[in-house]
Design a protein around this nucleic acid. Sequence first.
RNA 1: GGGGGAGUGUCCCGAGCGGCAAAGGGGGCGGACUGUAAAUCCGCUGGCUGACGCCUUCGUAGGUUCGAGUCCUACCUCCCCCA
Length: 414
Amino acid sequence: MSAYKSDFLNVLAERGFIHQVSEPDALDTLARSSTVTAYIGFDCTAASLHVGSLLPIMLLYWLQQTGHRPIALMGGGTTRVGDPSGKDESRRLLTDAAINDNLKGIRAVFDKFLKFENAGGNAVMANNADWLNKLNYIDFLRDVGRHFSINRMLAFDSVKLRLERQQELSFLEFNYMILQAYDFVELYRRYGCVLQMGGSDQWGNIVNGIDLGRRVHNAQLFALTSPLITTSSGAKMGKTAAGAVWLNADLVSPYEYWQYWRNTEDADVGRFLKLFTVLPLGEVERLTALKNAEVNEAKKILATEATALVHGRAAAEQAAATARATFEQGELSATLPTVEIADFHRHVRLLDAVVKAGLAASNGEARRLIRGGGLKVNDETVHDEVRLLTPNDLKHGVIKLSLGRKRHVLLKPV
RNA sequence: GGGGGAGUGUCCCGAGCGGCAAAGGGGGCGGACUGUAAAUCCGCUGGCUGACGCCUUCGUAGGUUCGAGUCCUACCUCCCCCA
């Protein structure tokens, strides 16, 4: 049990979400006696959020589940500047059009986790472009800029790191932390928002907002950060051979998403069940206690539960069923990812098919994979790198290509 | 403005007397072993090609040379020192 009295902080603490909290006692008291409005900002640097953003999303989820009010803040304005935190180099500047497209792609995910006003809930979706784009430079400097000390800003990790490594930090990026601080105060004004949450790398930025709130409005604001989650082997979350694990289904299918969680390392299962599913802690404990090969059962549940949160229960169950048929029964599952091939009149080169199926980036890579014994057609290892696929290879109307033991694709002539 | 240093394989770091598709790591992928895990060991890690081979790569553009990542010139970017 945690030492907190409020449901909100208790749940977060027990499930492993808390890295640092500013003035925990005061926040705990507040969360017990009233509805806390809290926000997390999300950058619009890509067309979808990925697994790395899942943790902040879950923070908002639990906030609402424990009776409070979440604000998902889209960084439509701050993305135009670029957050230097944790970045070695300056970010490429995105065009406004690209940012807007990204914003659209990102928004939809939140409906899965939060109940917004149009769905009978109290969650709020905001966009800091609404106030940042209108700022007047001189006014802003006088109202906000005067509260920031360069001496102190230079001491922040995000700045210090760049300076120490002699990497450029543009004035534009240098201002990011000021804008984020301003966001916090603006949300306090608009919505009475008193808590900003985020990843541990955001601590400095959040504290800036707290200071600004105190100076401008004499308000007591709070910070809560979540730990940086890595796998037990130290790798960052969310990267696979195919790239980032996006949350949008058009970028990463529910099946692939399920596979990502299914392949969790043993040592991470318990931690991930607490963080990325909403299973009761008792159930999590039972699953975590499983040993050796039995942890695979826990991994399947982790995969299905995590997938259900993002893609819905039905898609998650189907992904689980596809995996069961493919991996455990060795059957051909028609619900595996399918790639259509045209011009399959007489034959097509296997190399081309492998590339088209997305299993290799070039013919050369496909050749290497075949030489290394990593490629299978209908579950038989291929040794001939110039093999042709003919209609004779069709089984139940499709050809199954496998790369390694995990990646399977069905080819379907059209 | 003056002086000095740096930019290498489109994932990253990083060696490179004028013969270089370019050392070595990390990461990633494949194989073996397993449990769709971890650890370990082995292989691969520019494009095209059945193959010989051809093509494209070391900040950019020229030049010297049979031959340039390597030498010369100009330019771009970054860093340091002086002003």
